[in-house]
Design a binder for these strands. Structure first.
Lengths: 143, 143
DNA sequence: CTCTGTGCAAAATATTTGCAGGCTC
DNA sequence: GAGCCTGCAAATATTTTGCACAGAG
């Protein structure tokens, strides 16, 4: 099972024309196993610094371009990254108190983008959007 | 008319308990006159460096906390700021080619946040959200 | 007069780039 | 073997912080 996942990861890299290196496989495996988006520093830490930060940023940037990875902005000045499961468009809600992150599934991308184009004067194509919510989780409300 | 605007700006500062200093009045006036969100560097430039960057960041941060100013994230690694006209909740669409920014008005905040709370397991309150679109403007499509 | 706001200098973070060598294909 | 990927070092960019002084109320 674990080797299955790793095989899938190797295939993913190859499909996109990347060399299958240990660092990139580890990186994608880590992202695949993460329940929430991670910052470059968190990734670096969880990989026990086995990859250089410059290399890490370069790999992440490549993956973002290839749409293997999404760069997420959670309004705290750092970029977060998460694996893009192709069939699973979603957003996030972040607790302003404890930092908890939950996925938000309800997003009708198509109708949202159509709506935007209807109301826009100067735009012809919408390629993507970022949508994140900020609030308080149940636990933090009780405090 | 110009002095009217400045008076309104002075009042705004006072209302929020801030000292009415030349720098802060200039800053808010600049934001009021800007048609699009500006980065700290752009603001600094347009103010002819008449304000120190540290002071600028401190003022912007204060204003964000007081909800006089919104911090906007346009996915290019820098924070943008724009005046918050209270009655005017909106988002943006950015051209990935030329950087053009247009306001997007169609956002039913209330129903959007309700929808999120319905679908969320762990959250009780939504305080705000960020929503930005990325695409191509008509001019850049023709090229 | 008091206390907030400011400039200056320096630090802390985040991210990018150049280059020489290593590893995948 | 060719060229992508990597580590290391250093540069760049953005934002934050400490401190002493200036200016608003």
């Amino acid at each position: 099972m674990k080797s299955n996942t790793i095989e899938a990861t190797r295939a993913l890299l190859a499909e996109h024309g990347y060399r299958v290196t240990e660092g990139r496989v580890e990186l994608l495996t880590l992202l695949r196993n993460s329940l929430e988006p991670l910052t470059a520093s968190e990734i670096h830490l969880r990989m026990n610094h086995s990859i250089d930060k410059a290399t890490l940023y370069r790999a992440l940037e490549d993956f973002v371009v290839s749409k293997i990875v999404a760069k997420v902005n959670l309004q705290d000045g750092v970029a977060y990254y998460e694996l893009l499961h192709l069939d699973h468009h979603h957003h996030h809600i972040v607790c302003e108190n404890c930092g908890k992150i939950e996925d938000i599934e309800s997003c009708d991308q198509v109708s949202l983008q159509k709506k935007v184009l209807r109301s826009s004067k100067h735009f012809k194509i919408v390629n993507s959007h970022s949508l994140e919510f900020f609030g308080l989780c149940h636990a933090c409300c009780k405090k």
